[in-house]
Design a protein around this nucleic acid. Structure first.
Lengths: 194, 194
DNA sequence: CTCAATTCTTACCATATGGCAAGAAATCAC
DNA sequence: GTGATTTCTTGCCATATGGTAAGAATTGAG
């Protein structure tokens, strides 16, 4: 029994034999720091359950700048839903920020589980609902919270990202420049001293 | 055959008898301008296929201000995914901006379709993937585009919203104040004159 | 139709963040 | 270990947007 897969697929009442079927549909895969899970224009044909490592996704805006759209850590699913399920070329890039150890499952195997394992589609819907909720919360936070608040929230929820990621990647995720984030960090550090 | 339902449920190859089963699971409902589809704290127990009218969803931020999180128009699904599928009280409010004519389907009927109608769960996954994609694009737009660009994009995609909606609702959706949006409108009008 | 309530515009100034550029610090390749 | 590259910080000033408030325009209730 693998712990990462058990965490990811824990949501509904799968039997242990069903869990075994699910687990066996995954294949252990390793990516080196800098390797790409997915590149713009490709068709996503699998997703990855991340056992260790740190990953980011990014899009290229009209001025040619990379905008970080998400981070993925341990026990999270590295996936580009739109490309995988709408069967359309992706506009995102997904890159390993550190060496990664993950469990890959391809689209066909996933579809088989979807059809055959009782409750799997329910698990999938629940996962996707959660993903949608998180994305909406992110939009709302962009409107409601200051850059400083967004930074502190990210630090609280994912301290490992702050520690291991170049500042410019974090800045574009927060919707600010690296210059501003540097200033915000300084400001926070000053306040903590007092 | 209803046109709105046909548009909404067209995505996969349903047979006409399956479509009939789906349609029959819906009930015609009318809401008056100002009526609430859903209020914060409630559990969503249905969604609505909008045949006519205009709807907005909004959240209340920590300062007590309403932030518009989305607009819904003709042939769109008025839904709060997180509450409906995660079975948890909602943090959103959904309100009719005009009189609305819609087709309501409750959670249990939906679940029945999900289990019995071939391809229905696939339709659902496709719909949800599209919803997730749109939400991500909205986040990205908040980072990449100026308020003016976001306003123009909204005007292009949903001109009916611009025409029928109080400025303050649009402003909070764009992530700016109504004062700023008023200035932006003036600026746009001036540029068009020249 | 008329008054009240709401919505929209405008002005003033404040604040957050951006653009650019230079230098410091850290990391990487060999 | 050393030089090259990348990352981070800082300063200067520009720009976009916010806060407040007052008045104009529009809408709604009776």
């Amino acid at each position: 029994m693998n712990n990462t897969l058990a965490n990811i697929y824990q949501h509904t009442a799968f039997t242990s034999s069903e869990l075994e079927i699910i687990f066996k549909a995954h294949e252990k895969t390793f990516l080196k720091k800098g390797d790409m899970f997915l590149k713009e224009g490709q068709l996503a044909n699998e997703y990855y359950c991340l056992e260790s490592g740190l990953v980011r996704s990014y899009a290229i805006n009209s001025e040619g700048n990379e905008i970080t759209t998400g981070f993925f850590g341990k026990d999270e699913i590295v996936i580009e839903v739109a490309s995988l399920f709408l069967r359309t070329p992706t506009k995102e890039n997904i890159q390993a920020l550190t060496d990664c150890e993950c469990w890959k499952i391809d689209f066909n195997s996933f579809e088989t589980l979807f059809q055959t394992v009782n409750g799997f589609m329910d698990w999938g819907r629940t996962w996707m609902s959660g993903a949608l909720l998180l994305t909406k919360q992110r939009s709302l936070s962009m409107i409601t919270d200051s850059a400083t608040e967004r930074y502190l929230a990210l630090q609280k929820q994912h301290p490992e990202i702050i520690l291991n990621t170049p500042l410019k990647y974090i800045a574009s995720y927060l919707g600010i420049t690296d210059t501003s984030l540097s200033r915000i960090r300084k400001e926070i550090a000053n306040n903590e001293k007092m």
